[in-house]
């Protein structure tokens, strides 16, 4: 469904060139949940922004259903890490979620239904007329997820969405994402620096190297469904997988001088 093909991204020019991404390739299948994990500063966000059409690649391409991505495609929903800055503080939860729907030719009733369903599926029904700044960080990120869901994307790109919430909230949100992914039947690409999170959520895990970043390894995660915060993480396979990913990242780091 989604194909990343020899993607490279270079910043700057002349002597101050930095190569962020180098010849990076992988694919995402229909309905799949792919986690992208890598050491901090490895250009995960750059990769995701290229995939969303927010950033033009220097060479290579991203294609969605065979079409090369040149600008943000209509089938893509995006959840940013900085929830407090991607939600508009002057709009209520309802209006924030409805904002992207305004230019989709929908009836008023249809729009209301989409918004209310999305709010319900992230468990914020009672807060639909609140403003983002009246909610906790975790709740704000739920609003951002609801906004993406109401947009009815075929593919959902999530950029370290839970990096700035506390551990308990994070576990709740992880399970929320697994559930809505089933409910909405959406393909997910989830970027994170947390190895546990990547293994817990993903059907496959794409491990990235240090910059200039390429794909180190793609790992299938064959953990039983449904995933459970306690039981899944107790499984020996889980421990094995996370150790494997950890070593893959670590080994690669040892080959280059520490940053």
């Amino acid at each position: 469904m989604l194909e990343v093909n020899g993607l490279s991204k270079t910043y700057g020019e002349g002597e101050r060139t930095t190569r962020a991404l180098a010849e990076l390739s992988f694919t995402v299948a229909e309905g799949e949940f792919v986690c992208v994990v890598g050491p901090s500063g490895c250009g995960k966000t750059t990769l995701l922004r290229c995939m969303a059409g927010l950033l033009p690649p220097t060479s290579g391409s991203v294609s969605l259903r065979g079409h090369v991505v040149a600008g943000p495609p209509e089938q893509v929903g995006f959840v940013f890490q900085e929830y407090s800055r991607s939600l508009m503080p002057w709009l209520s939860v309802r209006d924030n979620i409805a904002l992207p729907l305004r230019h989709k030719r929908l009836g008023k009733a249809e729009r209301t239904r989409l918004v209310e369903e999305a709010v319900e599926s992230v468990g914020l029904t009672g807060f639909i007329d609140h403003f983002p700044w009246e909610l906790s960080g975790g709740m704000q990120q739920r609003v951002a997820i609801a906004r993406a869901l109401a947009y009815e994307p075929e593919i959902l790109l999530m950029d370290e969405p839970f990096a700035s919430v506390d551990a308990q909230t994070r576990a709740d949100l992880e399970d929320l994402v697994l559930r809505v992914r089933k409910d909405y039947g959406v393909t997910v690409v989830f970027v994170t620096h947390d190895i546990d999170e990547a293994v817990y959520l993903g059907d496959r895990v794409v491990v990235l190297t240090q910059p200039p970043t390429t794909v180190q390894e793609v790992l299938a995660v064959n953990l039983p469904e449904p995933r459970d915060q306690v039981e899944t993480k107790e499984l020996p396979e889980f421990a094995h997988l996370r150790a494997h990913v950890f070593r893959a990242i670590k080994r690669r780091q040892e080959l280059r001088p520490a940053t």
Partner: peptide, 24 residues
Amino acid sequence: TMLDTARVYGIGGLERLRRIVWPS
């Protein structure tokens, strides 16, 4: 980030001015 949000969700032109740029 707000401008990126607008781009991802296809909010452009006058709509982008009215809903995002001016309030901000």
